Deep mutational scan, measured.
Amino acid sequence: RRRVRAILPYTKVPDTDEISFLKGDMFIVHNELEDGWMWVTNLRTDEQGLIVEDLVEEVG
Rank of each mutant, 00 (worst) to 15 (best):
G49K: 00
T16R: 04
L50Y: 09
L50W: 14
I19Y: 01
M26K: 06
T45V: 03
R5D: 01
R3E: 10
R1M: 15
M38R: 04
R3C: 15
I28G: 03
L33S: 11
V52T: 10
V29N: 01
Q48K: 13
E57M: 09
Y10R: 07
H30V: 10
V4M: 08
E34M: 14
L8R: 10
E34T: 14
R2T: 08
E34I: 14
G24S: 05
K23D: 07
G60Q: 13
I7L: 11
R3I: 14
T16S: 14
G24R: 03
V52M: 10
T11H: 09
D54Q: 11
V4P: 02
W37K: 13
A6C: 04
D17H: 11
R44C: 11
G24M: 04
F21V: 04
Y10H: 12
L50E: 05
M26R: 05
T41V: 10
G60R: 10
E57C: 11
W39N: 04
L22H: 09
K23W: 06
V56I: 11
E18G: 05
L22R: 10
W39K: 05
E32W: 07
F21Y: 08
D15Y: 12
D17N: 12
E57D: 07
D35G: 15
V59F: 10
D46F: 15
N42W: 01
D54C: 14
I19W: 01
V4R: 04
R44H: 05
A6W: 00
Y10L: 04
V13S: 13
N42C: 13
V52F: 14
D15F: 12
S20M: 02
V13I: 11
R2I: 07
I28N: 08
Y10I: 03
R3Y: 13
T45S: 08
T11K: 09
G36I: 03
R3W: 13
M38T: 03
E58G: 08
F21M: 04
V56P: 01
G36H: 08
P14I: 09
I19A: 02
L8I: 09
L33K: 11
D46H: 14
M38G: 01
E32T: 14
S20H: 03
R3V: 15
W39F: 11
V40C: 07
G36F: 04
P14R: 07
D17F: 11
E53M: 14
V59L: 12
L8Y: 14
D54K: 10
R44S: 07
E18Y: 04
G49A: 00
L55N: 10
M38A: 04
S20D: 08
E18C: 06
L50H: 05
L22V: 12
T11M: 11
V29P: 01
L43W: 04
H30L: 15
W39P: 00
L43Y: 06
G36V: 03
L22N: 12
E32R: 13
D15R: 09
T16F: 02
I7K: 12
V29F: 03
L22K: 12
I28E: 15
W39S: 05
R2F: 05
N42Q: 07
N42K: 06
W39R: 06
G60D: 11
D54H: 13
V40F: 00
L55T: 06
W37G: 06
P9N: 11
D46I: 12
L33G: 12
I28M: 09
R5K: 10
V13A: 12
G24V: 02
R1K: 15
Y10K: 06
G49Q: 00
K23Y: 08
D54V: 09
M38N: 03
D25A: 02
L43Q: 09
E58R: 07
V4Y: 05
L33W: 13
V13N: 11
T16P: 01
R3S: 11
N31W: 11
L22T: 08
N42Y: 01
L8E: 11
G36W: 02
I19E: 00
H30Q: 09
N31Y: 13
V13Q: 13
I7V: 09
N31K: 15
F27I: 03
N42T: 02
L22D: 10
M38I: 10
L22F: 09
M26G: 04
E57Q: 09
R5P: 01
K23E: 11
D17S: 14
I19H: 01
E53L: 12
E47P: 01
L33H: 11
E53H: 13
K12W: 03
R3T: 14
L33N: 09
F27W: 01
W39Q: 05
D35R: 09
L8A: 13
L8H: 14
H30S: 06
E18S: 04
T16E: 02
G24I: 03
W39C: 13
Q48C: 15
L50M: 12
I51Q: 01
V59Y: 11
P9C: 15
E57L: 07
D15T: 07
E34S: 15
M26D: 08
Y10A: 04
Y10E: 02
N42M: 08
I19R: 00
H30T: 06
G24Q: 03
D54T: 14
G49E: 00
D17V: 09
R2D: 05
T45W: 02
L43V: 14
F27A: 01
I19G: 01
T41R: 07
L50Q: 09
D35T: 10
E34V: 13
Y10D: 02
P14Y: 07
V40E: 00
K12T: 04
P14D: 11
L43M: 13
I19P: 00
E34W: 12
G49F: 02
M38D: 01
M38Y: 09
I19S: 02
M38H: 03
D15N: 12
R5T: 08
R1H: 15
R5Y: 06
M38Q: 03
R44E: 06
K23Q: 12
E53V: 14
L50V: 10
V40N: 00
D25S: 01
Q48D: 09
I7A: 05
G24P: 00
I51P: 00
K23A: 13
G49W: 01
R44I: 04
E53F: 14
T16Y: 02
F27K: 00
V52C: 15
E32G: 08
G36D: 04
R5I: 11
W37A: 07
G24C: 10
M38L: 13
T41H: 09
T41N: 04
I7F: 06
P14H: 08
E32D: 11
T11A: 08
E57T: 09
K12Y: 03
W37S: 08
G49S: 00
K12E: 06
T41Q: 10
P14C: 13
L22G: 06
S20R: 02
D17A: 14
N31M: 14
N42D: 04
E58P: 10
F27C: 02
V13D: 10
N42A: 09
V40A: 11
R5G: 02
E58A: 10
N31I: 13
A6S: 07
I51T: 03
V13L: 11
F21A: 03
M38F: 10
R2V: 08
H30F: 10
F27Y: 00
Q48T: 07
Y10Q: 05
V56F: 04
D25E: 03
V56D: 01
P14W: 07
G36S: 06
I28Y: 08
T45A: 03
F27L: 05
Q48H: 10
D15C: 15
E34Y: 12
V52G: 10
R44G: 04
W37D: 03
S20K: 02
M38K: 04
G60E: 12
R2G: 08
D46W: 14
R3K: 11
E58F: 06
G60V: 14
L33P: 10
R44V: 05
G60W: 12
I28C: 14
K12L: 03
A6M: 01
D25G: 00
D46L: 14
E57G: 05
L55I: 06
I28L: 11
N31H: 08
I19L: 12
R1W: 14
E58Q: 09
L33Q: 11
D17I: 08
V29K: 02
L43N: 05
V52E: 12
G36T: 04
G49D: 00
E18P: 02
V59H: 07
L55A: 11
V40L: 01
E32L: 12
G36Q: 05
V4W: 05
L8M: 11
E47D: 11
I28K: 05
T16K: 04
D17W: 10
T16W: 03
H30A: 06
D54W: 13
L33C: 15
V29T: 03
D25Q: 01
V40G: 04
V56T: 10
E58T: 14
G24A: 04
E18M: 08
I7T: 09
V56A: 04
R5C: 10
T45E: 02
V52A: 14
K12G: 10
